[in-house]
Write a protein that binds this DNA or RNA. Structure first.
Length: 598
RNA sequence: GCCCCGAUAGCUCAGCUGGAUAGAGCAACUGCCUUCUAAGCAGUAGGUCAUGGGUUCGAAUCCCGUUCGGGGUACCA
C-alpha cells in the first residue's frame, strides 16, 4: 500500500478515536512538505480544529503522536501552525527506489486486449499548403497524448483525416494549369508540399488583383470576390472534379501525391505517425448520405433554396448549415461522414479530436448532431482543444506571409544545434552519422519541449527573432542530464560496479537532498496518470525538468563514483540509473529521443 | 450585440481539486572548467498575481463586477 493511503486511513481512525469525527476523504488533505520545512508528508489540520475544539498546534501534535505510534514508516513529526509535517523513514524511500528500478516499465501501464479503445485524430492537414508552426503544435500534442494514453493502459488508434478535396486544392490546380508550364516538384527542385503551396499563393495573388480591378470598376468587394474570373474557374474545376472528369481527377491525384510526399517527410522528421489515414474525398459522400437521412427523419430541414439546416437552439446553439444550396458539402458534413466510417471500422470507446480552440463551437455542434443522428458516442466525443501559436505581431496568417514554416524551422534548429555542438567540441568522438543523428535529436528535443511544456489549452507565443533556446528549462537540458547519467553508468561499468550486485547494501540514512530526489522519482507513476486524465503532456514535460534539475543540482558537486564509500555510493549509483530511466520514459511520452551522449 | 477563453517578474512560462515566505528559465550582474560532460553549478537583482468587491481560519487559485487581449458567431475549412 502506498504510504499516503496508509496515513490517510490512520488519520481517519485517529479522528474517530480522539474527536469522534467521521472525516470525509475531502477533509484529510495530505501534501508533499514544502522544501523549507523538514518532513516528507504534510497533513493540514485546520479542518479538524472545529471538532477537536483545540488549537491547531495541539490538534496537530495529538494526531502526530497517534501516527508515530501506529504507522511504522512515520519516524517523527513536527508541527508548524496548523501543519503537521511527518517524517518518513529512509527505508521506505529506498524500498521505493528499488521497486522503481526493478520494474521493467516503471510508471507505465501496458494495455491488454480488453482495454478501452481510444481513437485520437490529429494533424488533419489541407493539401494546399505546407505545414507550419501551428500544425507542429497539433502534431506534437496529438502524438504525445496518444503515447500518454497508451502508457495509461488504453489501446490507441492514431488517425489523420486529410482534407484532400474542395475548393482550396482546385485553386492550386488551376494555378498549375495556367502558370506552371508543366513543372513538377522534381523539375523545380522543391518539396512537393511547398511546390503546391506556392501555386496556391500564386492563385491568391492573381485573384486579389482581379478583385481590385473589378472594385475599381465600381463593384462591391463581395461582388468582386464572387465574380473574379479565377474563382469562377476554380469552382468550375471543383464541379468537374465532383463529376469525375478524368483529366481533372488525374491532375488532382498527381498534385495531392506531391503534397503527400512532402508531408510524409515532415512527419518523419517530427517523428509522428498514424495507424489509419482517412481522406475527405472518401468520406464526404457518407456525410452527405447521413445528412439526407437526417432530412428524411425530420432531424434536419431543407429550405426552399435547397440548403439544409439543423436547428440547435434547444441545445443552446444556433442554426447550422449542413449542405449548401448547390448541394455541395461543408466542413461539418465531412466530419459526420468520417465519424460514421471510423466507428464502422473500429470498436471505438472514445473519440478524441486534436483540433485548435478556434473550433470549439464546431465540435459542440458536431457532438449534438451526431447525437441527434442516433449515435450514442456523439455526446462522448472529446475535443482536445489547444491554443494557438501566436507571433509577436499576432496570429499567423498564411495570406500575409507571417507563417513559420515547419520544414524551415526544423532545418534551422538542426543547424543551430550542429553549430553549438561543434563550438563546444561535444561530439568529436562520434562518427559523423552518429553526430548528425544526435544534432537532430537535440534540435527536435528543443523544439518539441518548447511546444509541449506549455499548457495545451493556452495560446503560446513564438518569437522567430529569438531562436528556441538550448539552455535552461529546455529539452536539451533534460537530454544533457540523461547523457551525463549514461556517462556515469559507463564509468561505473568500467570499474566493474554492477548495479544488481549493489542492490542489497544500503545505508540506513540518506541525505535530505537525496531523499528529495527519491521522492521525486517515486512520483512518476502519478504524474503519468495525471497527464492522462488532464490530457496534458505539459505535466510530464515540467516533471522531467524538475527531476533533471534536482539531479544536476545535487550531483554536480557530489561525487557518485567515490571510492571506499560502498553503501552510499551504491545508492547514488542506483538513484542515477533510475533517474535516467524515468527521464527516458517521460521524454518518450513526449516523443523526444534522449541521446546516450551529447 | 451574443457566446467561449485568457491576464502571474522586463520577456517566455509553472503554480494540482483553496493552505505555510509566489516558482523556474531567458535577459542583466558576480563567482566556478587540474574534480564522474560548463548545453552545467552557486549567487545578486527583479512581484500590489490586470483591477474593485465577495466567500473563509486561510485566495494567484472559488464567485460577481470592471478594464484590456484572443477566438467564435447561418452557405470558409
Amino acid at each position: 500500500m502506498k504510504i499516503e493511503e496508509k496515513i490517510s486511513q490512520t488519520v481517519a481512525g485517529a479522528l474517530k478515536e480522539l474527536y469522534n469525527l467521521e472525516a470525509s476523504d475531502q477533509m484529510i488533505q495530505l501534501q508533499n512538505t514544502r522544501k523549507d520545512f523538514s518532513g516528507d508528508i504534510t497533513l493540514v489540520v485546520f479542518p479538524f480544529t472545529r471538532f477537536s475544539k483545540k488549537s491547531p498546534e495541539i490538534t496537530a501534535t495529538e494526531l502526530g503522536e497517534f501516527l508515530k505510534n501506529e504507522v511504522e514508516e512515520v519516524e517523527d513529526f513536527n508541527v508548524v501552525k496548523g501543519f503537521l509535517n511527518l517524517e518518513i523513514n529512509s527505508r521506505y524511500w529506498i524500498r521505493n527506489l528499488q521497486e522503481a528500478w526493478s520494474e521493467e516499465l516503471f510508471g507505465v501501464t501496458i494495455p491488454d486486449e480488453n482495454a478501452e479503445l481510444i481513437m485520437v485524430e490529429y494533424s488533419s492537414p489541407n493539401t494546399n499548403k505546407p505545414l507550419h508552426l501551428g500544425h507542429i503544435r497539433n502534431n506534437l500534442l496529438g502524438y504525445s497524448i496518444a503515447e500518454i494514453l497508451k502508457a495509461n493502459g488504453y489501446q490507441v488508434v492514431k488517425t489523420n483525416i486529410v482534407n484532400d478535396r474542395g475548393i482550396h486544392i482546385c485553386k492550386s490546380m488551376l494555378a498549375w494549369q495556367k502558370w506552371a508550364k508543366g513543372e513538377t516538384p522534381e523539375s523545380a527542385g522543391k518539396k512537393g508540399d511547398h511546390f503546391v503551396g506556392e501555386l496556391y499563393v500564386e492563385f491568391n495573388n492573381h485573384y486579389k488583383e482581379e478583385i481590385n480591378e473589378l472594385m475599381a470598376k465600381g463593384l462591391s468587394r463581395k461582388e468582386a470576390e464572387e465574380q473574379a474570373p479565377s474563382i469562377r474557374e476554380a469552382r468550375d474545376l471543383l464541379l468537374k472534379w465532383e463529376n469525375g472528369d478524368e483529366e481533372v481527377v488525374k491532375l488532382w491525384q498527381t498534385m495531392n501525391n506531391w503534397v503527400y510526399e512532402g508531408f510524409d517527410s515532415t512527419y518523419k522528421k517530427m517523428g509522428v505517425d498514424f495507424d489509419k489515414i482517412y481522406y475527405e474525398s472518401e468520406t464526404y459522400l457518407t456525410g452527405k448520405e447521413e445528412v439526407i437521412r437526417g432530412i428524411k427523419e425530420g432531424i434536419f430541414e431543407q429550405r426552399n433554396d435547397g440548403s439544409v439546416w439543423v436547428d440547435l437552439t434547444a441545445d443552446g446553439l444556433d442554426n447550422k448549415l449542413l449542405l449548401r444550396s448547390d448541394g455541395t458539402s461543408v466542413y461539418i458534413t465531412q466530419d459526420i461522414g468520417t465519424a460514421k466510417m471510423r466507428f464502422k471500422d473500429y470498436e471505438i470507446d472514445k473519440m478524441i479530436y486534436v483540433v485548435g480552440n478556434e473550433q470549439n463551437y464546431h465540435f459542440q455542434v458536431l457532438s449534438v448532431i451526431l447525437d441527434k443522428l442516433g449515435y450514442n458516442w456523439g455526446k462522448g466525443l472529446y475535443h482536445f482543444s489547444y491554443g494557438m501559436v501566436e507571433l509577436p505581431g499576432g496570429k499567423m496568417k498564411s495570406r500575409e506571409g507571417t507563417v513559420v514554416d515547419a520544414d524551415d524551422l526544423i532545418a534551422e534548429m538542426i543547424q543551430v544545434a550542429r553549430n553549438m555542438a561543434q563550438e563546444l567540441g561535444k561530439l568529436d568522438a562520434l562518427s559523423s552519422e552518429e553526430a548528425e543523428r544526435t544534432y537532430e535529436m537535440i534540435a527536435l528535443g528543443a523544439l518539441k519541449y518548447f511546444i509541449l511544456k506549455v499548457d495545451p489549452k493556452k495560446n503560446m507565443l513564438f518569437n522567430p527573432l529569438e531562436s528556441i533556446d538550448f539552455n535552461g528549462n529546455t529539452g536539451p537540458f533534460i537530454q544533457y542530464t540523461h547523457a551525463r547519467i549514461q556517462s556515469v553508468l559507463r564509468k561505473a561499468a568500467e570499474k566493474s560496479l554492477s548495479l544488481k550486485a549493489t542492490l542489497p547494501k544500503f545505508p540506513a540514512q540518506i541525505s535530505v537532498k537525496e531523499k528529495e530526489l527519491l521522492k521525486r522519482v517515486a512520483q512518476f507513476p502519478e504524474v503519468v496518470k495525471e497527464a492522462g486524465v488532464n490530457y496534458s503532456p505539459a505535466v510530464i514535460a515540467n516533471y522531467c525538468y524538475e527531476l533533471g534539475k534536482e539531479y544536476n543540482q545535487f550531483y554536480h558537486d557530489h561525487p557518485i563514483l567515490a571510492e571506499n564509500d560502498d553503501p552510499t555510493r551504491d545508492l547514488r549509483l542506483l538513484l542515477s540509473a533510475t533517474v535516467g530511466k524515468v527521464i527516458k520514459t517521460g521524454m518518450k511520452l513526449l516523443g523526444i529521443d534522449v541521446p546516450e551522449r551529447m
